[in-house]
């Protein structure tokens, strides 16, 4: 039920993000979700892609420091209060959300998909399942 996320170390300077997306573009890696966190001198780009292993290989080749971490993909009913309900469940289960970001548009118009980085994926997924909130696995995500 986990999705693989690639996190990449970038310097916070003009062209750094562009150089990295250029590596992915030249190797025809498709981005499914992206978020960037930054400080004044460095940033971390977090990506969900169609082919994690290939993306990792081409990034390594290009000299990028990066790692792969499991994250949760959550299908949130696209109605007012949808995200709030998910956070309520996680709060009740005392799961801390380290960060989260939205998935780039899929074919499913009923749901908004979001990526959650939490301390305990298993605990979060179980709590969500109990309240009928769907998490997506890598394969489902690839088909979105």
């Amino acid at each position: 039920m986990n999705i693989k996320q690639i996190s990449i170390f970038l310097e916070n300077k003009p062209g750094a993000l562009y150089a990295m997306t250029g590596v992915l573009a030249r190797n025809e890696v498709d981005l499914r979700a992206l978020s960037v966190a930054e400080t004044s001198d460095f940033g971390i780009a977090r990506l969900i892609v169609d082919d994690t292993d290939r993306a990792s290989a081409v990034l390594r080749e290009a000299g990028y420091v990066h790692n792969i971490t499991p994250v949760l993909g959550v299908a949130i009913p696209d109605v007012p209060g949808g995200l709030n309900k998910v956070l309520q469940v996680l709060t009740d289960a005392q799961v801390n959300v380290e960060y989260m970001y939205a998935f780039l548009g899929g074919k499913d118009v009923e749901h908004a998909y979001m990526i959650f980085r939490v301390a305990d994926n298993g605990k979060a997924a179980a709590a969500l399942a109990e309240r009928d909130i769907k998490t997506v696995d890598q394969e489902e995500m690839d088909n979105l």
Binding site: I44, R46, T69, E98
Partner: peptide, 13 residues
């Protein structure tokens, strides 16, 4: 930055 010192967690870095 090195692979050993890197994590996706900003706070940790």
């Amino acid at each position: 930055m090195t692979p050993e010192m890197f994590t996706d967690n900003m706070g940790e870095i």
